[in-house]
Design a protein around this nucleic acid. Sequence first.
DNA 1: GCGTGATATGTTATTTAGTTACATCCCCTG
DNA 2: CAGGGGATGTAACTAAATAACATATCACGC
Lengths: 144, 144
Amino acid sequence: MAHSHAGHDHVWADDLTRNQELVLGALAHAEAPLSAYDILDKLRGDGLRAPLQIYRALDKLTERGLAHRLESLNAFVCCADAHCHESGSIAFAICEGCGKVEEFAEPVIESKLRGWSKTSGFVPSRMTIELRGLCKGCVASLPA
Amino acid sequence: MAHSHAGHDHVWADDLTRNQELVLGALAHAEAPLSAYDILDKLRGDGLRAPLQIYRALDKLTERGLAHRLESLNAFVCCADAHCHESGSIAFAICEGCGKVEEFAEPVIESKLRGWSKTSGFVPSRMTIELRGLCKGCVASLPA
DNA sequence: GCGTGATATGTTATTTAGTTACATCCCCTG
DNA sequence: CAGGGGATGTAACTAAATAACATATCACGC
């Protein structure tokens, strides 16, 4: 089962190294974001031992847009959208109830940010947009 | 109004505790964001010894909008805009050259994010918008 | 095949960031 | 003056990320 995936399929790049594949796999099977140490714990059985092994893989994966880092969580998710790297900036909605993350693109936001950058002479290299709150499901099941 | 200011002075709330004042002061005098441990180092002379003392003060300060946390940096800045807490969400442009941070508000962005939230049933409690890149000055002095 | 440079790996130790747990102190109010 | 809430102080700890160094792997030119 090297490549395909039940349900939602991912862009499995064919040239990932073993460690990168393991890390991406761990993220892909997780319901919620994982910290580097969470990933490490899941992969001890596969022979990974040190944080650095995870961080190195994560660096490559995020570079290529196959995974994303959630800054406000110090954690990582598998990219949910095959085309996200084409659409430039991505936003995340992080549920503080169930921990799940939704990834979405709002082109207008990106263009507004680029607009601000242009007028202030700032040259952006990376954009982070994260919402914290409660997802639909968690709001519904709130303590009445 | 009660706490107004000249020049680049701050909105000094009149009811800060000693530790909160020290921490806010440290941030206010810094050119760039400071980590909690940076702040601690600056305040050892004032009798502060433990990280927790800093974190507690920072919690209160960020709660009140007098300081902001930069998620992508694990660091803090003094709020630059007396009215930022009125305008809801704030965005930051972080220069990777000189380390300085610009704080700006883009109401359209906030409303777009609220729009997305509404349609997806997400109830946001906090929004993080951070740009990384190079400020005007640093771009200008780039290695030709 | 052989050298060589770029990239990926493995391992240990260390630094940086943030929290838990617990005791104390100060002030306000009844 | 009792008792509660908030701020403080201190030590020990967990979590996140990096430094430094040693090997291995692979592609490429010769």
